[in-house]
Design a protein around this nucleic acid. Structure first.
Lengths: 226, 226
DNA sequence: ACCTGAACACCGTTCAAGT
DNA sequence: ACCTGAACACCGTTCAAGT
């Protein structure tokens, strides 16, 4: 989708520095080595310049990460045309989550640095439209979009920086070994707490969210901005 | 709750290094200057030693942050005894969220590094118990606890690292200025998308989550661990 | 065992100076 | 305007050596 490299390791005669070029380099490093390596210094090195030069085009590291996310958001396909509005909604959200799961650390960033690029706007428009199609009242649809996107983002973010001796192992163990005397509910349902594939849980969560959004009225004063 | 300092800036004759001492120092630095300053080097300096010494008691920075969170979780009071199960549930979750909102960057960490300390277990037990009191089926209660805690954590995490020229301002502007031609739903409902106080939205979200959890069945095979 | 100085391999950001 | 070298003020983690 972005410009193809002419050959594996050929330095392309130092292209002019542009914001787009910086973001493209950032995406490349992200895909190859993860967000942890997407640093000002590394990018400067990649672009054959000094780190100070990047600050002409990018305010800081956070803004750079936000720009990278917006770029990747473009790779998520359009909303499916078939199926019920519920199915379509779930499919759009699942596709978005899948994209974020390829770069969990970026999801983590997205939670803090709200994206506001064109691709993100389009996603919101799609979700809003599907909810309205389903007859969800306007205010509930508006607040619901936030809830749905937050769940998708947070779920992906949870998978950031795991891999080795995952401390989630410890959490599972703590749950399974909770003494029935002090934690009767956990002891009785530890299996259920840890059950289900990630896919099954994600699907269930989206459906639960949707069911909740549909039947929970927004307070009447909900009109002014914080 | 932890040992009181004898005087504001008196060096306490170099106390013996312990894991507890390190975590206590970490909590102090967190409260005073935020998580960004809770670094191995800074803590070593605070404890009058070299950074290498800390690695005897703490595997790495992530583990340290997790230990700090577990410590703070102890400051959240017990579940309220009065009110309906719904009200009590909402109050427990709101108290948890409020604690995390005092340290949003820690919430961000918690999303990745699942806490598994005694305080976290107690919170899960409480939530599970309240849901069962409300007659929510066991499997739904089990999966629901995750959803509720994730929302609390993610909501707090969203407030990490903002303060100055918040790029959330940009997101709000993008929403308000979306052209009606291409984004009719957003244009029509921008006000609603941005409406409501944080408290109102949090309360609505918890109630919507609860409503959804109550009436969304978990798939029947939901028994094995990933 | 516990503790440490020193080193390795990095960071973000700013500033004064150049073109 | 745009670009840069150099500097400032930091990081996490490891290792060989000490006690």
């Amino acid at each position: 989708m972005t410009a193809a490299p002419r050959s594996r390791r050929e330095r392309p005669a130092k292209p002019a520095l542009t914001r787009e070029g910086i973001v493209a380099a950032a995406v490349a490093v992200l895909r190859a080595e993860g967000l942890r390596k997407v640093t000002m210094r590394r990018l400067a090195q990649e672009l054959d310049t000094g780190p100070a030069s990047l600050y002409v085009y990018v305010r800081n590291t956070d803004e750079l990460h936000a720009a990278v996310l917006d770029e990747l958001l473009g790779t998520v396909g359009p909303a499916p045309a078939e199926g019920s509005w519920r199915e379509r909604l779930e499919r759009v959200l699942t596709a978005y989550t899948a994209m974020l799961l390829e770069h969990p650390s970026l999801a983590r960033s997205a939670l803090t640095a709200r994206p506001s690029g064109p691709h993100y706007l389009r996603l919101i428009e799609t979700l809003l439209d599907l909810l309205r199609t389903g007859g969800v009242p306007r205010a509930q649809a508006a607040w619901g979009v936030d809830l749905l996107l937050q769940h998708a983002t947070a779920t992906a973010a949870e998978h950031a920086g795991e891999e080795p001796t995952g401390d989630w192992q410890a959490a599972a163990r703590a749950l399974r070994e909770a003494p029935a005397a002090t934690h009767p509910r956990i002891a009785a349902d530890a299996g259920l707490l840890l059950s289900g594939t990630p896919e099954a849980r994600l699907s269930w969560a989206f459906r639960a969210l949707l069911n909740g959004i549909e039947r929970t009225a927004v307070p009447t004063e909900g009109q002014e901005t914080p």
